[in-house]
Every structure is written in structure tokens, then in C-alpha cells.
Nucleic acid binder design. Structure first.
Lengths: 176, 176
DNA sequence: TATTATGTTTAGTAACTACTAAACATTCAA
DNA sequence: TTGAATGTTTAGTAGTTACTAAACATAATA
């Protein structure tokens, strides 16, 4: 059984669309990344429109999202008004970039609200059931510790120059 | 400034709702977990309805989702028809459970489609541009390697008896 | 300046999600 | 067997999301 390359590529694009959707991104994002990832040369917006089947508007916004995540890079050529896009092929680099992006947004503010709860619990005095206060303090503190651990890991990964296979191997060793 | 405990709790519930939403779960899921997490005793479905402000139907489905993720445990008491729910307080345990759950579903099938692409590319013969085939093989192989690394990490974590602070500290050391 | 090539923004829409309200199912007890 | 307590499922809905089509903006060229 031997399939033609275009069909195989199409299959890959659909696969990444699903993965993209699974991770909470629009499907178009995955499709566009897949198209770029399978292209040996950077693609223009119009070429992406053609290859992904989306409209210009969609490609325009999706490709910008990808660029913000560090998964694609935009470049321009001298004497050519078009923008060109190419896929980041170092996934570890991309992970760091995504972690950095996620760090900012509302994730921080959400986590901060847990810390605020903790501080309020510590500040509150009088007219409250002291046993309950203690119980709540313990629980919220435990959650806070957990978030801090996640945060540490995330920051540590972000700080790495390169998260290569050897690092992964080392981590795997620790996890036995 | 001293707030009453109920208000502080409410604030916490809202915070976890946001976090829940951020991670791609319904807000109700976060709210219900928060209510259970702040309760020293297991709560019944009706108590959860009262504390979360959701309807029975919503609580019924959300709490089941939480149970499937291993974030809450359902129990029943002798001579009492009600079900009771309590929060898992070991977050590392919960992570393992979530990873296990995620492993199953369509994530696998999505990743599998990348592997299929790889296999097809290896199988294809004749009537294809050999240079392009080689290029595609390289790229798809690299992505596959990345997924495999993620998968290894995920499985390693799932396999641990307990992912305590000491393990996290060790990983942090590696990441320098 | 008018024309063309490119990218962005906007208005509208179809599909989806998380929920509510209420019907339904099940189990226990009288 | 009926009735009450509990939990689940279903039908409908409001809000959201990811997209399309098309208007718009910008800049280069004639």
C-alpha cells in the first residue's frame, strides 16, 4: 500500500488539528503549524490560506497566536512586501516560550487569589471559630505549596538554555 | 481589616473557579472542588448544591467528572442513602490520576496519528520525490521523538508511589 | 494620485459548552 | 404498593468560540 505524499501530509495536518484542539487551542492553529512544519521553505499568508483551507482572516489571527507562543517565526524578505512564516523546530524552545506566555496572563491572577485567601486567613482575628480557621489555614497552605512547586518547576524549565534529551533522561532517572 | 470566614471561603471558591476554567474545565468543577476542599467533613450532593449555587444536575455531572479525575472521592454511609464526597488532598496523587485519565482519551489517538504519518512515510515507495520524502521523514520523526519524551515523563510520574517535595527538589537541582 | 498587493479588523454566524429546569429512574420505608 | 428521598438523564437555552465574508487600512508602484 503506497499513498501519495500530499495525502499523507493532509493526514498529518488533521492529526495536529486534533492535538491542537485537545490542548485547548483552535483547530486552525494546529493546521497552520502543521503546514508550516512540513514545509522546507517559509510560507506566505496566501500560501497558508491555500494549504490550510482557512480564510485570510482566520490565518491572520491564528498565525499571530502561534507567533506569540513562539511556535512560528515571522520574517520578511527584502524587496518583497509579503510576510513569511516558518515553524519553530526546537520544541523545547517552544515549550519554554509557551510557559512564559502562560505565566503572564490570568493564570497568575488566579493563583494570586489563593495566596490572598491565605493572607486573609492569617490576618483574621476574633469573632471566628479558631478551630475552623486553623483547619482552613492548613488546607489552603497545602494548596499554596503545591502551586509554588509547580511554579518553581515551570520557572526552572523556562530558565534553561536548552532542554535537550539528556536533561529529560536525567529527570527520568530520578523518577526511576 | 478582618473578614468573616464565610466571605473568605467564598473568595477561595471563586479563585478556584477561575483556575478551573483556565485549565479548560467548567467553572463549576472548580467551585465544587473548592467547597469540598474547605470542608472538614464529606458533603452530600444537596449540600454541594447549596454551597456551590449550582443545580442538582450540574453538581451531579461535575462531581462525577471530578471523581473520574481522582480529585474527589465518593463514599456512602451505612443506613444512609446519600452519597458523600470529599476532596483528595494529596495533589501529587491527583496529578497522577489526571495524567492517567488524559492518557486514555483522544490524546492517544491524536498522537497515534502522528505515528501513522511516520509509518506511511517510511512505507511509501516510488513515484514520490525522494528528497521531499526524506525531509518530511526527518521532521515528523523529530515531532514523534518529542511526543515520546513527553509520554515517558508522563508515564514515569504516573508510576511513582508518591511525588513528594523531595522529588521535586531533585528535579529542580537537575534543572539548575 | 490612482491602482494594486498585502495584512487586519469587523460584523455576522454556526457549532459548541455549561448550565437550568424538569422529567425520569431507583431505592428504601411505611 | 404507594410515597418520599436521592441521584441521573434529557430538553432547552444563554453565552462563548472559531470561523467566514467582506470592509477597511497601509504601503508600494505606476
Amino acid at each position: 500500500m503506497s499513498q501519495e505524499l500530499p495525502q499523507i501530509k493532509q493526514n498529518f495536518v488533521e492529526g495536529l488539528s486534533h492535538i491542537s484542539h485537545f490542548w485547548g487551542f483552535p483547530k486552525g492553529v494546529g493546521a497552520i503549524f502543521a503546514a508550516l512544519y512540513l514545509s522546507p521553505a517559509p510560507l506566505s499568508l496566501d500560501e497558508l490560506v491555500q494549504q490550510s483551507g482557512l480564510t485570510k482572516g482566520a490565518v491572520s489571527t491564528d498565525v499571530r497566536a502561534l507567533a506569540r507562543l513562539g511556535l512560528v517565526h515571522r520574517s520578511s524578505r527584502l524587496g518583497d512586501r509579503k510576510d513569511y512564516y516558518e515553524a519553530e523546530t526546537d520544541f523545547y524552545k517552544a515549550i519554554r516560550s509557551i510557559l512564559g506566555e502562560r505565566q503572564n496572563r490570568e493564570f497568575d491572577s488566579a493563583v494570586r487569589s489563593v495566596r490572598e485567601t491565605l493572607e486573609k486567613l492569617q490576618a483574621v482575628r476574633g469573632s471566628v471559630d479558631e478551630a475552623e480557621r486553623k483547619f482552613l489555614l492548613e488546607r489552603v497552605q497545602a494548596l499554596q505549596n503545591f502551586f509554588d512547586a509547580i511554579d518553581s518547576l515551570s520557572r526552572a524549565v523556562s530558565r534553561l538554555d536548552s532542554l535537550g534529551m539528556s536533561t529529560v533522561q536525567n529527570i527520568l532517572k530520578i523518577l526511576k
